[in-house]
Amino acid sequence: MTYQFDFAALLPYWPEFVHGLWLTLQLSAMATVLGFIVGTLCAIGRADGPPAVKWAVAAYVEVIRNTPLLVQIFLVYFGIATLGFRIGANTAAVAALVVNVGAYTCEIVRAGLESVHKAQLEAADCLGLSRVQTYWHVVLRPAVERVYPALTSQYVLLMLASSITSQISAEELTAVANRVQSDTFRSFETYIVVGLLYLLLSFVVRIAFWLVGLGVFVRRRKLGTAL
């Protein structure tokens, strides 16, 4: 092996890497928050909506879960363009990621909703809670609390999957890597560095979710166990 590693060639590009890292975080954070909202609403619709809504949500979930994210990204990016709207690559990237992760979130949250025991609802009724109160305190929050670890894994995967948006030239970390390697011809080094950055990022996202969990699920922290 005669290859000489030269990581120093990448040093001048550190502001670009930081910029890409920051955009990756922003894209993932936005997609996570919006995807959670979309997914939870869909899960509620799937569980307690009228038949038409149930059917529509089921179709949405199946279509998204059985087609690649790359194709979904192309469809959103080019599809919206053919409809006559001009949107930026970053907006299209977030939109595609939200549509994608919304379907997965829906399935996960639905599993949580189904795990709420019927006796809990009867108990809430006996306590005189209103429908909305019951749904919020007895159904939704414990459901999300139970599936929180699964959601965390899903959103880490989402952060990693955001690399695919480089294919429509959203300027996130992978796109920066592609540009830097074609500038420096130090392809192997570039992707090693970026791979490590993603690894770091996936730990950061896990820790962030753990901290958020500590803050949101107070009962879990006190009891030391999920419901």
């Binding site: 290859y3 690399s163 992978t174 992707y191 970026v194 690894l199």
Partner: peptide, 17 residues
């Protein structure tokens, strides 16, 4: 913890290395 895309690039350029 690394995206498949990066893994593919690493292998693609790695074998050349």
């Amino acid at each position: 913890g690394t995206p498949l895309l990066i893994l593919l690039f690493l292998i693609y350029f790695g074998v050349a290395v």
